[in-house]
Simulated scan of single mutants.
Amino acid sequence: MEIFGTIAATLTTVSFLPQTLKTIKDKDTSGISLGMYSIFTTGVFCWTVYGFIISDMPILIANIVTFILAFTILMLKLKYK
């Protein structure tokens, strides 16, 4: 069962990479919602804390990486606003 969770965590985390790279490259955040990314980044941070508390490595690692990617996009949104 853990392998299924690991696959799911990997796929959902990797899905943020193209958006992050595109945002860094183009410096265009006009199509990105500040509210959505603020809420989403906060939620991912909470999932990271939860993964740490329950010592679940797939949840913890996936959400650390997702947090970094989402936080990067959020900071670029604020910078290029």
Rank of each mutant, 00 (worst) to 15 (best):
L78H: 14
Y50P: 01
I61D: 09
F4K: 08
G43L: 07
V49K: 05
W47M: 11
V49T: 03
F45W: 12
L76E: 09
Y80S: 02
M36K: 09
I3N: 07
Y80C: 05
M57V: 14
Y80L: 04
S30D: 15
V14C: 08
T72W: 02
P18I: 07
D28S: 11
Y37C: 07
I3L: 10
F16D: 00
P18A: 12
I61K: 09
T42L: 10
Y37I: 03
I39M: 14
I3M: 08
T23M: 02
T23H: 02
I73V: 06
V49W: 00
K81Y: 14
L17F: 01
K77Q: 08
K22H: 02
S55V: 15
T48V: 15
F52E: 11
G51F: 11
Y37G: 11
F45G: 12
I3V: 08
I54S: 06
S38V: 12
T20S: 13
K27H: 12
M75F: 09
I59N: 04
P58W: 00
F4H: 12
L76C: 06
A8I: 13
L17D: 00
M1A: 14
S55G: 12
I54N: 12
P58E: 01
F40I: 00
T20H: 04
L11C: 03
A9I: 04
I54P: 07
F16L: 02
L78G: 09
I24K: 01
A70D: 09
M1V: 14
I24E: 02
F52Q: 10
F71T: 15
F52K: 10
L78I: 15
F71I: 14
M36P: 07
G31I: 02
G5Q: 09
K79F: 06
T29N: 10
V44F: 12
K79V: 05
D28L: 08
S38Y: 11
T66F: 04
I54Y: 07
T48Q: 13
I68W: 06
E2T: 15
I39Q: 09
V65P: 02
Q19E: 00
K27A: 14
G31H: 06
T13P: 08
S55C: 12
P18N: 07
P18F: 05
Y50N: 02
T20F: 06
I53V: 05
G5F: 06
L17S: 00
L69P: 00
I3K: 05
L69F: 00
K22N: 05
T42W: 10
K77G: 11
I64M: 12
I53D: 11
G35E: 10
S55P: 10
I39T: 13
I54M: 01
A9Q: 03
D28C: 07
T72K: 03
I39H: 05
I3G: 06
V65T: 08
Y50H: 03
T48K: 13
F16I: 00
E2P: 12
F16W: 02
A9L: 10
T29V: 14
T48S: 13
K77F: 13
